[in-house]
């Protein structure tokens, strides 16, 4: 049963990814991406990562996608405007064909690498039911990975300052 659910959700995630690319309006892209993220969250849950599924929904679907929606609505880009290219014939130009070839090559390389990767076989009775123990993750984050943890917090501070600088309206230039 859960195997069938996994393959069903994989298809849903891939369809959501396709929807991001071929949707006419950016609003449709955002909603397709949300579908893909929710499907991936359930895939995480099935694979034994309950905490990562919750993080996926809270951070990705809850915070990052809201940021995208906010900017799209702020700039008033949500409609089926004609300013978006690729609405009629997505793969007509030679540039799009080249892009499709590159993407297919990347995907094929990934498939071959995944096929040839020397993964250890799953133990008898399948993988562990629950892999991401929150206590163990916290011990790892504040112990072995405390230096990357601090680097990432510094990154967040720098990001905050950078966003303020970039998005702040400069009085002199906006008056022109």
């Amino acid at each position: 049963m859960s195997e069938f659910l996994f393959y069903l959700l994989s298809v849903i995630a891939l369809v959501g990814g396709l929807g991001v690319i071929f949707s006419k309006s950016p609003m449709g892209s955002v909603l397709s991406l949300l579908l893909s993220f929710f499907a991936l969250a359930v895939v995480y849950l099935l694979a034994g990562f309950a905490f990562m599924a919750a993080v996926q929904i809270l951070v990705y679907a809850g915070a990052i996608m809201v940021l995208f929606l906010f900017v799209i609505m702020l700039l008033n880009l949500g409609g089926m405007g004609t300013r978006f290219e690729l609405s009629a014939a997505p793969l007509s130009s030679s540039r799009a064909k080249l892009a499709a070839v590159v993407a297919a090559g990347v995907g094929l390389a990934g498939l071959i690498a995944a096929q040839r990767a020397s993964l250890p076989a799953l133990p008898e009775g399948g993988a562990p039911e629950r892999i991401d123990d929150i206590q163990q993750i916290a011990i790892a984050l504040f112990g072995r990975y405390s230096l990357p943890f601090q680097a990432v917090s510094l990154l967040l501070l720098v990001t905050m300052v950078a966003v303020l600088v970039l998005a702040k309206r400069r009085g002199k230039e906006s008056a022109q």
Binding site: L14, S36, A47, A99, A103, A113, G126, A127
Partner: peptide, 24 residues
């Protein structure tokens, strides 16, 4: 879930290829 981990990698490769395609 008794799905082999390779199939998770296949899904990952597919999603990554879609991302590359859309970005280009």
């Amino acid at each position: 879930m008794n799905v082999p981990s390779e199939h998770l990698f296949f899904l990952s490769a597919g999603l990554f290829a879609l991302g590359v395609l859309g970005f280009l």
